[in-house]
Amino acid sequence: MAALRKPESGCPWDLKQDHQTLVRYLREEAAEVLDALAAHRPGDAATEVHLCEELGDLWLQIAFHAQLAADRGAWDLHEVERAVVEKLVRRHPHVFAEVEVAGAEEVLTNWAAIKREEKGLGPESEPRLLEGIPASMSPMDEALEIGRRCAKVGFEWPDLEGVLDKVKEEVAELQAESDPVRVEEEFGDVLFSLMQWARKKGVDPDAALRRQMIRFKGRFESVEDDARAAGGWDHRDLDQMEAAWQAAKRKAKP
């Protein structure tokens, strides 16, 4: 990156970039890592290589931003690394100091307390529970974060069955609505409830949806191949497409 950013002998494109012009590439590379994770199968050579490559592309964005800062004498990649190492050590006193914890939940409680101390916040100045959620989060991730924060203070269903009952309740309310505005609101309630069920169940909804879309695309290719073999989509009705779909599902099962 230092060579690419070197005046006169560097790359014209790299020399034109700044933190803001790189934002879109950071988003794209992060999305490609998520796709690689969705397709990843531990031990499978092809998906291992793919994940490694995509993580490298994402790391390049970090290196690029650090080089921009180094060029103006602000900070560099080593300071990025040093800052995160110091933070990890400070927030893991049960590993790097003498603090003892009973389990993962206590680790999270201590982590939150240490973060408040770092910011100089006491109980009286503590921000509202749902403040400070990054605006750049996807709606799916924000819904999960809202649920996590509320659960920390006990505003949570006592069991998984209660969340599923809430999902069913919201679906029934959605089915009963006809007004467009209310339909949208009820649809949002269904999605939010599903996010909380996934959170409580330990399912990553983003990864689940990405994997489902990979499966869907693979099965739909079989439907498309069948249509092409028959002379095109005009030569296939819904029943025939459904039959091809079911055949693809059976073939995909181990």
Rank of each mutant, 00 (worst) to 15 (best):
R82A: 15
E54P: 03
A38D: 03
A66L: 04
H65L: 15
L68H: 08
L60Y: 13
T47Y: 02
Q61S: 07
A66F: 06
L51I: 02
A74L: 14
D57K: 10
L60N: 02
F64A: 14
R82C: 07
A46I: 04
E53I: 02
P42Q: 11
A46L: 10
P42W: 01
P42M: 08
E48R: 02
C52L: 14
A45Y: 09
W75C: 12
D57A: 10
A38V: 06
V80D: 04
R82Q: 12
L51R: 07
V80S: 02
A63E: 13
R82N: 07
H50A: 15
H40S: 01
G43C: 12
E48L: 08
W75I: 13
V33W: 05
E53K: 03
W75V: 13
H65D: 08
G73W: 09
V33T: 00
G43P: 09
Q61M: 15
A70L: 06
T47H: 01
R41G: 00
W75E: 09
H50K: 13
A39V: 01
G73N: 10
F64T: 14
L37R: 09
A69T: 06
A66P: 01
E54F: 08
P42A: 08
A36M: 01
L68R: 11
R82V: 02
A46C: 05
A74P: 00
A70P: 00
A63M: 11
H78F: 11
I62K: 05
G56N: 02
A66C: 15
L60H: 14
A39E: 11
A45S: 12
A36G: 09
C52F: 12
Q67I: 00
L37E: 08
A69I: 06
